[in-house]
């Protein structure tokens, strides 16, 4: 019986909220969402970590300006030709040929963001578009697109990239990003399709149809703004998986050799046999990979709660 009270109460609350807010729904929703987000511990931790990583990525431009030997890829300390532990000159030590680990770590943050966000963004754009079209058009278009999605979904991304790089030699980092994006959209499109299917039944879509709106107009003007929050949520999860795939590729030796990524750093540790000898070199990139994926994941979980009221704890109703 409790359900009814809460339900009717929420409705009356909604009405009141609606009257007093005089902003665009996006801003209003953002504010309301932020209020809920702020109460989420995981979300707060995730966001803090991400801010730290973002600062690291921004700072990656500083060391090379101080001294060219801090160039993460090409800069070598003229006095050091082997891996050394932390010192005043090299806060985290140097690698096997005397390059500064800290500046490599900072550059790695930049690469991680670049790879993660751009791959995720591309896969979201593809996935959302395909999901909306499949859901809205239905019938044969839907079947065709979803079978395609199924086929791609069952292909192991890592393996395909390995085979491709075996065929074409070393891959450029942007090609890797593109491949990750092309293989990671089906999950997104499934979710967006489901959302579109339910939106399609809503009267405001029918009203647009009766007004004479074309399919394109309905999809991009009426459906898209309503699925975007969900798409952004999935983007955070996609970032995580893109970073992990890139790190794994680099570690296995199939990364872009001209880019310093955390996976690449790990590969150097391993290849030069410092795995168990130089914790100052092994740990930072390892911890960073774990933490950045974890923080994107936590961000996603918290956003999930903002978007899906069912996941919220009861406490917030008051």
């Amino acid at each position: 019986m409790g359900r009814f009270e809460i339900g009717s109460y929420e409705m009356s609350m909604e009405k009141l909220n609606k009257k007093s807010l005089n902003r665009s729904p996006r801003i209003a929703r953002f504010r309301a969402g932020w209020a809920i987000y702020r109460q989420n511990l995981l979300g707060k931790i995730g966001l803090t970590l991400l801010v730290i990583f973002a600062l690291m990525a921004l700072c990656s431009f500083i060391p090379p300006l101080i001294d060219p030997m801090y160039q993460p890829m090409t800069g070598v300390d003229p006095d050091i030709a082997k891996s050394t532990g932390p010192s005043l000159r090299h806060w985290l030590g140097t690698d096997f040929m005397g390059r500064d680990i800290l500046s490599q770590l900072l550059a790695g943050a930049r690469v991680a963001f670049m790879v993660g966000v751009s791959a995720a963004f591309m896969s979201i754009v593809i996935g959302t578009t395909i999901g909306m079209i499949a859901g809205y058009m239905g019938k044969f278009v839907d079947t065709l697109l979803m079978r395609l999605a199924d086929m791609i979904m069952v292909m192991p991304t890592l393996l395909v990239v390995l085979i491709l790089s075996a065929l074409f030699g070393q891959l450029n980092i942007w090609i890797i990003v593109l491949i990750i994006a092309l293989f990671r959209w089906p999950g997104v499109s499934r979710v967006i399709r489901a959302q579109t299917l339910s939106l399609k039944q809503r009267p405001f879509i029918e009203a647009a149809k009766v007004a004479g709106a074309s399919h394109m107009r309905i999809i991009f003007r009426h459906i898209m703004p309503n699925v975007l929050p969900l798409a952004f949520l999935y983007m955070t999860f996609r970032v995580t998986s893109a970073i992990i795939i890139e790190a794994a590729l680099a570690f296995l030796g199939f990364g872009d050799p001209s880019t310093v990524s955390w996976g690449m750093m790990l590969q150097w540790v391993w290849k030069t046999g410092h795995m168990f000898k130089a914790p100052y070199w092994l740990l930072p990139p390892g911890i960073c990979i774990s933490l950045i994926t974890l923080s994107f994941y936590m961000l996603g979980r918290a956003m999930d709660e903002v978007l899906d009221p069912r996941l919220r704890k009861e406490a917030e109703t008051g």
Binding site: R26, R202, P203, E206, A207, A208, H222, P225, N226
Partner: peptide, 11 residues
Amino acid sequence: FQDPYQSLNPQ
């Protein structure tokens, strides 16, 4: 349409 809460695009 019948339901004015559903027939306007919230966005």
